[in-house]
Design a protein around this nucleic acid. Sequence first.
DNA 1: AAGTTTAATGTAACTTTATTACACGAACGA
DNA 2: TCGTTCGTGTAATAAAGTTACATTAAACTT
Lengths: 283, 283
Amino acid sequence: MNTLELIQKNLNAFSKSERKVAEVIIASPQISIRSSIATLAKMAEVSEPTVNRFCRRLDTKGFPDFKLHLAQSLVKGTPYVNRNVDEHDGAEAYTAKIFESTMACLNGAKNTLDTTLVNRAVDVLTQAKKISFFGLGASSSVAHDALNKFFRFNIPICCFDDILMQKMSCINSSEGDVVVFISHTGRTKALVEVARIARENNAFVIALTALNSPLAKESNLVLSMSVPEDTDIYMPMASRIAQLVLIDVLATGFTLRRGSKFRENLKRVKKGITDSRFDLCDL
Amino acid sequence: MNTLELIQKNLNAFSKSERKVAEVIIASPQISIRSSIATLAKMAEVSEPTVNRFCRRLDTKGFPDFKLHLAQSLVKGTPYVNRNVDEHDGAEAYTAKIFESTMACLNGAKNTLDTTLVNRAVDVLTQAKKISFFGLGASSSVAHDALNKFFRFNIPICCFDDILMQKMSCINSSEGDVVVFISHTGRTKALVEVARIARENNAFVIALTALNSPLAKESNLVLSMSVPEDTDIYMPMASRIAQLVLIDVLATGFTLRRGSKFRENLKRVKKGITDSRFDLCDL
DNA sequence: AAGTTTAATGTAACTTTATTACACGAACGA
DNA sequence: TCGTTCGTGTAATAAAGTTACATTAAACTT
């Protein structure tokens, strides 16, 4: 377990002074590993032995040993930890926090994603007669993004925000069609119903959603990622970002599976777009 | 450059005693990073200052600093680097690469984003009579996402994919309106023209785009982030993700600026959504 | 609610660790 | 051969980390 994450997780288990130390370290781990125990103690406004006790509580032999662990975890794992935005944060502070939280989130998502299932999903997608992407609310922009990506592959594809259009589309689906549903919670009633209809019409249902959710139960294949819930009102839904990256992953897998001739095509599409742009020399 | 490799490579450049130190470290680096300078000196059968000099020769401040560098280099795998997907990658490999590249990208974006400008943008947005979000192609899903976020703030807001609708909307704009344009390259002709129209009608133009691009030149305020260009056809546009996070940042800044009463409202909206969901006990 | 106990924290003495200053001796060149 | 330079070690010094203990705050008991 990553030392920095460990500190973050145990924040509540620490005593008042120890928490001060923890906060200083989380705020600037890179500085911490270069500081002496005296400097760190001063930064956290506690005494040196408190810092030492803090280190021991984290199962290290002492301060130098702790620094070693921290230094290694800064390389290995995420240097970033989910930090909530505070009411009094300035632009610099909240910008950093949001970027870092998002990165921490992606790291978590990556580690909990089952790549065997990714592989199966890619299998199914490459063999699809038609692919549909459906999401509602915040997830609808993820569906749009997926449309944009898969559209370039020149295969029958569709994407609707509208729940009725989604239903109609599913009613018309048949064997060989694949429907991808996107929902963070997997508990949006309307969407779950659409998924059921898709299944009833022999479509293959892939869900980017939470494990064991109602939506997951209606699906043939569930791609889930554990992403911390957005308990904080300031905190934007990083889950959405993780879903987008997952779409990237699926699109990439798709491209790879299709072989080299297919990739030549892609280059042509990309080149086609540049014609609607100013030349680089216009810069 | 990896410290251990560096030692290995420079073996011949060291003096006799220093080489002894180098050999001991190469033989058991894990032990070395946990030893004191005295222990290491004894292991190498040299004096302590020799070890110290050895450390300085490797451009470190001293023994503790050297240990830090060594410790970090001993950790395998560099996580946050942009690694291109390879034709022969399996699902696990490309999944990891894409997630990690995206994180690397976000990190880069974070570091190149000017928070002073973020602050100004938030200023402008909070005072806007109406806010519009426009993007084309891949950026249109970013615009949608922005709509979804800012919509909750209960202010006049709009978002169009259609270039004609965008134009019409801009022609009708007036003093106090803010239009946010989203474009990775900033060179999409159609969008640049819309921006010009917006400006001509006294709207305040914010662009999430590349510095010095034609779009940037038509804008009152440019939020740019340096994100590696997607040279690789496999590699999905991580720039899009960075833009989404930037939207998150702006939305958060907006929320903070509006004060605590406003945030109470947001909680209500959030609660309102849950009614269209299955209860948690349905899980 | 007061007293007792326990946990948390800081002070100061002490130990360990690292660095510096300097001296000695070998290698090299004139 | 002498002087210089470079490498090395010894010893002194400084810095960092740890321990023991005293003090204070918190919690629990009666």
